[in-house]
Amino acid sequence: MQHLDDLYHEIIRAHNKNPENYFKNEAAECKIEAYNPLCGDQFHLYFDIHDKRIANLSFHGYGCAVSKASTSIFTEKMNGLTLEEVLALYKNFHACAVEGKNTDINDFIPFQVASRFPGREKCAILTWESFKEYIERLK
């Protein structure tokens, strides 16, 4: 059971059960979709950009425990950041969740093992990738 508990860490389980910023905001300035055709996971992200900073970031949709928790943490961490800071944080999360590198951000640590589970490579990074692509187009 050690393996499973590495993936379904208490941080992931807590965010999956009670995700942060989990609501639709149709009035948002920016709305993007994070979709994984392989598993059908689909999140809608809602946010504004105020003074070149991400504001009012929320999400809604369907996904596994890992992708939902990852998106919940994403909304907590990204809110209030500048576009440059967004990309820097993306890199940090990518290094951890995809490359398996160590990180100094506690909430990211449980995702370090996610990519090692068969077929679960995309779960942690799904929302982050979609958001990053959107931000890069803005720049």
Binding site: M1, L4, Y8, C39, D41, C64, P118, G119, R120, C123
Partner: peptide, 12 residues
């Protein structure tokens, strides 16, 4: 329970 969480659990 998401099907991928179930299948990961069963795989273990």
């Amino acid at each position: 329970i998401h099907p991928h969480d179930m299948s990961t659990y069963l795989n273990e």
